[in-house]
Amino acid sequence: MRLSVLLAAVFAAGLAVPVAADEIWVSNEKDDTISVIDVETLEVTRTIDVGERPRGITFAIDHSVLYLCASDSDTVQVIDPETGKVLHELPSGEDPEQFVLHPDNRHLYIANEDDAITTVVDTETRTVIAQIDVGIEPEGMAVSPDGKIAITTSETTNMAHWIDTSSQQLFANTLVDQRPRHAEFTLDGSELWVSSEIGGTITVFDVASQAEKGKIGFEIKGIHPDRVQPVGFEMTKDGKYVFVALGPSNHIAVVDQKTYDVLDYILVGRRVWHMAFNGDESLLFTTNGVSGDVTVIDVAELAAVKSIKVGRFPWGAAYRPTN
């Protein structure tokens, strides 16, 4: 009798408090907070206080800790995702804006926007192991799937800088259109994509030769081309789509990863900036800086399904599985 009551109680409790769902973490640049969104209910469940002007946001590969660029605090904060507490801070160089975690799960490549430097930090020893001179206003960061190449894009120099991660030296510098903002390698590592905000294009490079292989432009009816500004973008792992945030045009472009054709445009919030998928890539969460919200896109339908209010000027987003 007692046992069955206990079991019933456990069962009831299990129903009342559902298993924690996966989460999307959003950095709010002008609120010094992170908003945590529950992927099931599509609601903000936690708001976490962090350092000043949080921008770049990424989890360790095993999701044990969160790394966050607190730009105006001149540091990278390491945060416990369970408690939201700052565990410690990493040296980052001045004004860290964006970063990328090397596949070794140990080295962070950080763009120091005000200093024209890329800083390489060892997250275990918590030391800077290299600083590499790059162009003015480094921003976009990427690392090849095999870990051999890191990329920094510089907004005012208008280049992608190619870093050999074994020597931490530049081995190539390739020009792109005005104000490159973001870079990503394709999953097979054969192509590098770089978005140019003011140029209004994405340049695709052949990684082996660093030669330009293609260029993608965008055109939205009723919006002047000057306002169609590609910024953050993410590729689906199935090799099908690239979703491109088009900034003040308030749209996400859907690009065919293989043919480079633009397939569709999806209306989202104002000044859409970066984005993150959920675990099975069925949903895409875009940060809309000016409207202060996150748009949820159904990837199968290529349609916006909900917008979620977050903090002021949401900047980056990162996915956290909880099971």
Binding site: L175, T201, I216, G217, Y260, D261, V262, L263, D264
Partner: peptide
């Protein structure tokens, strides 16, 4: 629905090789 804006081949850009 191929909406990609055709990028005009640009004399200046093609003249540019970084090597």
């Amino acid at each position: 629905m191929a909406l990609a804006r055709p990028i005009l081949a640009c004399v200046f850009a093609s003249a540019l090789t970084l090597t």
